[in-house]
Simulated assay, not measured.
Amino acid sequence: MVSLSYVVDFLWLLKIIPIALLVFAVLKTEPSPSRNILLLALVFSGCGDLLLALDEFIFGVAAFLLAQLSYAVLFSRYWQGILNRWPLSLVLILFMLGMTWLLIPNLGELQLPVIAYLFTIAAMGLLAVQSSLPIRWAVLGAIFFIISDSFIAINKFIYAIPFESYWIMSTYYVAQFMLVTGFLYAVKQQKEV
């Protein structure tokens, strides 16, 4: 009979396999500062996955905060200006303000780390929207990441979402795939110019 600890060990491994595959895909590209930052974002994301799977919420949030900061730095390298896609920026700001308003009364002792994370992911999202990267991949990837994290926050602090793991993980993996695809596309375009 298989013990429960082996099943739990196997489940966290399954959770990080998609991120590991993305890391290998990025490692196949030519070395560059952008590639290194992207790898850092993926490694922090994988660490966050592992820590959340082990019920280390604060450490998991910290790892994802570092991933978001890495993505923000990466998007800043493609900065196009504050007026780039401003309607989408406005929608994102309003969404993040709404999430903050919903969450604050329910955060208790976690108010400071969660608000810091909300600010960081909002900055990452705005830098994505205001970048020159294609909306189809990188920008939508950033938006899907925000949606995935919003599902986590709502599920943890406001009310239980039916099939929460499905919604959280599907949007999260789509986000990571789109982010990596967007950056790899940008690197390819730069080589062709």
Rank of each mutant, 00 (worst) to 15 (best):
V2R: 04
L11I: 09
P18S: 06
I19K: 00
V23E: 12
F24N: 07
F24L: 15
V26A: 06
K28D: 03
N36L: 06
L40C: 11
L42S: 00
A53Q: 07
D55Q: 12
D55A: 09
E56P: 03
E56R: 14
E56W: 10
I58M: 09
F64M: 04
F64Q: 02
L69F: 09
A72N: 11
Y78V: 02
W79H: 09
N84K: 15
W86K: 12
F95P: 02
M96L: 04
L97M: 15
G98Y: 12
L103S: 09
I104H: 03
L107H: 04
E109N: 13
L110A: 11
I115E: 05
L118H: 04
F119G: 08
A122Q: 06
A122Y: 02
A122S: 14
G125N: 06
L126Q: 04
L127D: 03
S132D: 15
L133A: 00
P134F: 05
I135N: 06
F144N: 04
S148R: 04
A153R: 03
I158V: 15
A160F: 06
P162W: 08
F163H: 07
S170D: 07
T171C: 14
T171N: 13
Y172P: 05
V180R: 09
V180T: 08
T181W: 15
K188W: 13
Q189V: 15
Q190K: 15
